[in-house]
Design a binder for these strands. Structure first.
Length: 272
DNA sequence: AGACGTACCTGACCGC
DNA sequence: TGCGGTCAGGTACGTC
């Protein structure tokens, strides 16, 4: 469920729900996520005002008045649900109860996600954040930056834009979608792209992510609503998950291949 | 430094 | 119904 737009959506929703509150209670059911949930988490975060909620790459950062930060990542299958959680469901690993009495539940079947804490000052020293590239929606992600970065990269452009050291937040879905819109084959070696292709790709990555955020990502429903309607942006996908269906532009069959262990979807006719 | 394979874990789905 | 295989929106680590 989580690429950048979904995480952004979760962060926006969380912010409106938790700002000014504090955590009054934590229930932990499993500690063995991607990293262990720290055993002293309650001591660090309970009863301090929540002063900010932000996104960094695909991480959710909840800043507290005592200069601690609660850091969460949703992995492949993580969800954050707000509301009364009367009886914990399967794979609910941690439930935070707010001073407002609302509850925030972290649910993650595959447990590739993460819940840790860090001091505000220590964030920049975290290994997690040590080698992250620029935020795609920021002014740091430019044609100039990307063209310099791609010069030394001979791997396919698809796996390259999914590399967090190159740019953060571009996951499998939006990598496929952006390359389709940019008419660039996912197989092209990154250092073979022309300047105008790179310029176009930068603009399109920003556009695709912004549109998906506008649409509330694809996890909005799990999160705001109790009825599990499918995400809104899913309906706008041009290639992802559409193997053997017709390209909306040229009617060729959408192809599916494997790159770096992940599925890539593309139009062999439109994307060169 | 960068490329690549593999590992982490559970559930859903498909063919037999 | 059960079994085995494959797949899934992410990241980290070892090796070459």
């Amino acid at each position: 469920m989580p690429e950048l737009p979904e995480v952004e959506t979760v962060v926006t929703g969380l912010r409106s729900e938790v700002l000014g509150n504090s955590f009054h209670k934590i229930q932990i059911f499993r500690t063995d996520l991607r990293q262990q949930i720290p055993s002293n988490i309650a001591d660090l975060i309970l009863n301090h005002e929540i002063i900010d909620v932000r996104r960094k790459a695909k991480y959710i950062l909840i800043h507290l008045a005592n200069a601690q930060v609660l850091i969460m990542h949703l992995g492949m299958s993580g969800k954050i649900v707000i509301g009364k959680n009367e009886k914990p469901k399967k794979h609910d690993h941690i439930i935070f109860t707010l001073s407002s009495n609302q509850q925030i539940t972290f649910n993650d079947p595959r447990r590739f996600g993460l819940v840790i804490t860090c001091s505000t000052a220590g964030i920049d020293k975290l290994k997690l954040f040590a080698n992250l590239g620029p935020e795609p929606l920021s002014s740091d992600f430019t044609t100039d930056y990307l063209s310099k970065t791609l010069k030394s990269r001979s791997s396919p452009i698809k796996t390259t834009i999914m590399n967090n050291e190159v740019v953060v937040g571009v996951g499998n879905i939006y990598a496929c979608e952006a390359l389709f819109k940019a008419k660039i084959s996912p197989l092209r070696p990154a250092n073979f792209l022309t300047i105008s292709e790179i310029e176009n790709l930068v603009a399109i990555i920003k556009e695709v992510l912004a549109l998906a955020i506008q649409a509330g990502g694809s996890s909005l429903k799990d999160y705001v609503n109790i009825n599990g309607d499918l995400g809104y942006f899913q309906n706008q996908l041009q290639v992802y998950g559409r193997a053997n269906l017709d390209c909306h532009i040229c009617n060729s069959k959408i192809l599916q291949i494997k790159q770096g262990g992940r599925s890539s979807f593309y139009c062999g006719n439109c994307q060169k």
